[in-house]
Design a protein around this nucleic acid. Structure first.
Lengths: 103, 103
DNA sequence: AAGGAATATTCTTATAAAGGAATATTTAAA
DNA sequence: TTTAAATATTCCTTTATAAGAATATTCCTT
C-alpha cells in the first residue's frame, strides 16, 4: 500500500496506464533521473503492481492488473469499515443530543 | 491523510470510537507513554480528526465527525478514480487479446 | 500561596525512505 | 572483441517522523 503512497510512483502508475513504457521513457516523461525510476519500479514490481518484459537491451514495464485489483479491494474494504464506524458515531451523537433535550 | 497512516494514531481513533477519553486513559489503554499520546493527539487535532474539551485539570478528546467524513469522501473519490482506471485497463487488455486472436 | 496531578512541549536520538553520484551489468552494434 | 546504450545497483547524504527523557505549564486541592 505504501508503494502507491509515494507521489512519483503513483505518477508512474498513471503514466503506465496509457500503455507500456521503458525506463528511459518514464524518466523522460516524469522528468526524473534514471536510477530513481529504476528504484521506484523495483518497489512497484515487488508490490506486484507492475511487471517487466525484457526486450533486448530494454525493459518494458506495464501495469499488473491482478495486483492493482488487490489494492482496489483493500481500499474498498477499508472504506466500508470506516463508513460503518462513521455511521455508528453519528447514531451515538444523535443519541447524546436526544438525551440532552430530554432533560 | 498521513495522520491516520500512523498505527498508534489509528488505534487512538478506534479507541475514541467507544467514547471520549482523557490523555491518561488513552495512554493506559494503548500502553503508550503520555508524551507520545499528547503528540499524536496534537497531530490528530491539527488534522481535524479529533477535538478537545478542557475539563478542569484534564482534557477530554473525542472524535470530530466532520473531519472524519472528509477523509471518508477522500478515500471514496480516490477509489472511484482508481476503479475507472482499472476498468479501462481491462478493456485495453481485452482489446489486445482480441487483436492477437485476429492475427 | 504551596504542592501535586494531568497534560503539553522541548531537545535529543533513532530509523526509514528518497535523491544524487558513481559504478556495475547486460546486450546490441561495429 | 571492443564500444556504447539501457538499466540496475551500491554508497552516501538528506529529510521526515517517531520515541525517550526531561522539563514546562496549567489548574485543582489544601
Amino acid at each position: 500500500m505504501s508503494a502507491i503512497a509515494e507521489p512519483n510512483r503513483l505518477n508512474i502508475i498513471e503514466l503506465l496506464h496509457d500503455g507500456p513504457c521503458t525506463v528511459g521513457e518514464i524518466a523522460e516523461q516524469l522528468r526524473l533521473r534514471q536510477p530513481q525510476v529504476s528504484k521506484h519500479l523495483r518497489v512497484l514490481c515487488e508490490a506486484r503492481l507492475v511487471e517487466v518484459h525484457p526486450m533486448a537491451n530494454r525493459r518494458i514495464y506495464k501495469l499488473h492488473v491482478q495486483g492493482l485489483k488487490e489494492i482496489d479491494s483493500w481500499i474498498d474494504s477499508f472504506r466500508h469499515l470506516w463508513e460503518d464506524r462513521l455511521d455508528q458515531l453519528e447514531d451515538y451523537l444523535k443519541e447524546l443530543q436526544r438525551k440532552e433535550k430530554g432533560e
